[in-house]
Design a protein around this nucleic acid. Structure first.
Length: 124
RNA sequence: GAAAGUAGGUGAUGGUGGUUGCGGGUUGAGUAUCUCAAUCUGAGGAAAGUCCGGGCACCCGAAAGACCAGACUUGCUGGGUAACGCCCAGUGCGAGCGAUCGUGAGGAUAGUGCCACAGAAACAUACCGCCAAUGAGUCAUCCGUCAACGGUCAUUUGUCAUUUGUGUUUGCAGAUGACAAGGGAUAAAAGACGAAGGACAAAUUUGGUAAGGGUGCAAAGGUGCGGUAAGAGCGCACCAGCAGCAUCGAGAGGUGCUGGCUCGGUAAACCCCGGUCGGGUGCAAGGUCGAAGGAACGACGGUUGGUCUUUUACCCGUUCCGCCAAGAGCGAACCGCAAGAGGCGUUUGGUAACAAGCGUCCCAGAUAGAUAACCGCCCUCCGGCUGCAUGGCAGUUCGGGGAACAGAACCCGGCUUACGACUACUUUCUCUA
RNA sequence: GCGGGCGUAGCCAAGUGGUUAAGGCAGUGGAUUGUGGUUCCACCAUUCGGGGGUUCGAAUCCCCUCGUUCGCC
């Protein structure tokens, strides 16, 4: 689980990100990122959205969320502060493992230049 | 060994260790609406579906009682429970070879409705049929009267023949026989008439039947024997149903005897009866942060689904004192919020459900919603390979996996549904000894 | 959390206890035509989402369940 400072917690934040954020698409996930205008060193916050269409069972949805959270936690030291991100899980395949999520998250966050220490060219 | 059945607990994601990390409680510290450290703790038997019953909270003014409206898949009996549509024990009925299982199990004589098609008729009738009477008519029988032809019998008359007596013969008298005629009698006599009872019987009408036919899920208790004009519980035996009595049982009911002989199904159709409940909304209840009303006096009236009764409160009017710059939104910020019809152990009572006593324990509290990720060793399963030499067992620097159903959201008690592995007992069948 | 509706052929659907479950579109086959379209004819539900019950009889009534959809706070 992420620390509380790195979590998006309110419905308003989700609305603003959905309306104003930049979209990046991957195979399994979709990223919406929005850079907050104030340049204060607030840590980057993440929200995860798994639709009921993905699976009707709460168990599978929660498992996906946990694995994404674990991957994010692994990437957390390299994240640039000052962003708000939502990770939307596409309703594709329910049998996903940790490594694929980690790889996909790395690519998406690097594209959006949220990851530190990598430019776009380095990754691609 | 196979196939079934019942009961029981169980399921933290195999065990253990490490690194990174999350929610909560407590304690301590600090730069104090946050952070850090230590320590403890952190999903289920169904947390699910939301099908019932409650607790709790607020609103419709409140509380109590009676009756009514109303609601209820409430509906065998007895018990358990805070309560229940739940559980336990039993009764009846049904299913199964059996162990066992299922059971919405009041009333069809309170009333209404429905029972398609078929069938005469679907709830009180009679189509075909059977029987009795009626009966055009047919048949034979018996009785009485009459009686043709023919027969028989007796008799009368005549003729002829034979014979006897008398006698010369004829003749006369008698007997016998044959033939003819007459009337008479007779009957197993054609037939006619009359009367009687009998058999058959068309049509019609009247009555008795519900055995048989056919229809259908269902047709007036079933089967058999007797009985009857034909039939029928009309009688009898057994079975089924109803009622009464006796007896056993706390009761539902069981058993036995007797009796009259009998009443279609459907209430998961309306309904009737008994029983229970008594309004609504649901923790997004509701409260705090965060606004304010209080006191005195007063006649009539009004306020709960309806009526009535009792107590009380409020509404209303007047006076006095007091509050508010404006505004009533955002926020799961805080409380509600976790010690409970609690768990575990044990004793006693009870067939059991369960209850009581004693001891002991504190056991999740999130709110975009906490249990995860990676790694080491051990155990175990599957597959591959090797060996024994063959349904298996053993080994492995091999590969893959550690299950299924499934995630607390105010809390309990049930029900239902989904699902893994296991243990014990029981039944039936087969094989071996 | 509370409450309602709907599942019938590939699609839209009628049917509210009584034969063999209307109809339209689509599809298949045939006829008409030189060919195609139009038109006409025929076929197409092993039975009404699944299971159980009541009934002589169930798509229909009752119970459980699965799916789907809507509303309120």
């Amino acid at each position: 689980m992420l620390p509380k400072a790195n979590r998006l917690r309110h419905w308003r934040d989700f609305q603003t990100i959905y309306q104003q954020g930049i979209r990046w698409r991957g195979d399994l996930l979709m990223l919406r990122a929005w850079r907050r205008t104030a340049a204060d060193p607030v840590p980057t916050r993440f929200g995860i959205s798994v639709s009921r269409k993905f699976s009707k069972h709460a168990v599978t949805r929660n498992r996906i969320k946990r694995q994404i959270r674990a991957a994010l936690h692994h990437l957390l030291p390299d994240i640039v502060p000052g962003w708000d991100c939502i990770i939307v899980v596409k309703p594709t395949d329910q049998t996903c493992n940790y490594d694929r999520f980690l790889q996909e998250l790395k690519q998406l966050l690097a594209k959006a230049e949220v990851l530190n220490g990598h430019s776009r060219g380095n990754v691609l």
